[in-house]
């Protein structure tokens, strides 16, 4: 049950199989070539998204959490 590089493959993942290392090496080269950003900058950009997204969802959800009002 292994891909050409020995590990279940592919960015076309249907469930959560690991990405194929050979394909990822090719893709990361293309990303480097196209964006021209240093690894540190890419880490900072993606890391910021991973941190900010849950905080925003949490804050907005808590602010809009349905509160029960009293009725007679």
């Amino acid at each position: 049950m292994v891909g050409p590089s020995g590990v279940p493959a592919g960015p076309l993942l249907h469930v959560s199989e690991p990405i194929d290392p050979a394909l990822w090496a090719w893709l990361s080269d293309k990303i480097d070539h196209t964006l021209g950003l240093s690894p540190g900058v890419i880490i900072a950009i993606i890391g910021t998204f991973i941190v900010v997204f849950p905080i925003v969802v949490m804050v907005v959800a808590v602010r809009n959490r349905p509160s029960r009002k009293s009725v007679e």
Partner: peptide, 26 residues
């Protein structure tokens, strides 16, 4: 879980194992 594939070559070098061995974990 998908990121597992990124580490295969590094583990091969660090642990002296083959890709096929690492694929057992996958």
């Amino acid at each position: 879980r998908q990121g597992f594939g990124v580490f295969v070559k590094t583990w091969e070098q660090d642990w002296g194992v083959t890709t096929t061995t690492i694929s057992i974990a996958a």
